[in-house]
Design a binder for these strands. Structure first.
Lengths: 199, 199
DNA sequence: GTCTATACCCTGATAGAC
DNA sequence: GTCTATCAGGGTATAGAC
């Protein structure tokens, strides 16, 4: 006889394990990239054996996708949250986004390291990142267009082009910043860039 | 008795081997990154055994540094060549640089993939890229300053900030372009960005 | 769900002959 | 300078018990 209570408890415990694993994996992937990260170090971090870990994620690739989807979900919550606050100018929201990113270097590094690794076509994250950029660009174009109509942003350049430039500036600044955190200020340079957008 | 002629011939042959290896390694590093590249595939590409290859470069790390220095040397020749042609506006030179980069995707990918991989502190290319950016920024600041004095570029933003933004835009566009070459045009977006610089 | 044991493959690097 | 042979080590993933 199946006891609902016991079942829920077990399911919850399993979920907790998954999340603990994702959290630890996030840290190592961000620090060392995907290929250089060993299952053993993740397993050790969550105080579990390798097969124990592989019970939750059938392979290392699955684990990567799990990490990316989870992190992307959180990331996008904030991004879309930005979109909802339509009373704020987009420029202000972008400024806040970068400021926030500067506060969580680990997460930024995760995406910067992995997106670059995934440029190579055979990387397990390749499709994920292509779709991610496509998706983020689409959302961004909406926002920028509205903002242009309101006159907040210059309209002599198309929203399509602007959003590509905006993401490029973010990614590029992240690289220099991650290489020399003491020397490069993401927010400072990005805010200067934003001046360009208001014409 | 040492024969000068024979010695020179041998040294030349060795140099040819080195260059063949670097050429092949460049291709694989660009395609798959450093860590994912196996010595065996490079060795096979140059029709040599692994120990034969390791005779020229004592370790895989040495080979990476060899590749980076060689490619950087070529890259910088063009970059400094740009600096010398002082009659041309910097903006024009930058435009040409990016146009050239779009024509050699392999080389661009080499640096984009490797710089991102090397963000992790323990990567054998980490120091190389930090120094590279420092060096390129220094050269760039000189050029931008002069250009500002001549009134070609807006002077309400410091040359230090402008050069960081310029490299960021280049790197960021490269990422999106490498992920979707058919969809993103580096030159188009970069030229739009250059408009910002002339005020 | 988690473990122990282990299979299996690959990888960079070395020893030593030619 | 290049090879064959081989080492030492580490990596993911599976089998099967508890």
């Amino acid at each position: 006889m199946i006891q609902p209570n016991a079942r829920r408890t077990q399911a919850e415990r399993s979920k907790a394990s998954r999340e603990k694993i994702i959290l630890a994996a996030t840290k190592f992937f961000a620090q060392n990239g995907f290929r250089a990260t060993k299952l053993s170090e993740i397993a050790q971090a969550v105080e579990m054996s390798e097969p124990g870990l592989l019970h939750h994620f059938p392979s290392k690739n699955h684990l990567l996708i799990g990490v990316l989807e989870e992190r992307d979900r959180l990331d996008q919550q904030r991004y879309v949250g930005v979109a909802d606050g339509e009373d704020l100018p987009v420029v202000t929201s972008l400024r806040e986004l970068v400021t926030h990113n500067e506060a969580v270097p680990g997460l930024v590094q995760l995406f910067t390291v992995l997106v670059a690794e995934s440029i190579t076509a055979d990387h397990p994250g390749h499709d994920f990142f292509r779709k991610r950029y496509q998706n983020l660009r689409e959302i961004g174009i909406e926002l920028i267009s509205k903002s242009q109509e309101k006159g907040e942003i210059r309209n002599d350049i198309s929203a399509e082009d602007l959003i590509v430039m905006i993401f490029a500036m973010m990614d590029g600044l992240q690289i220099q910043w991650l290489l020399e955190p003491e020397k490069i200020s993401m927010t400072k340079e990005f805010n200067l860039f934003l001046q360009f957008l208001t014409g």
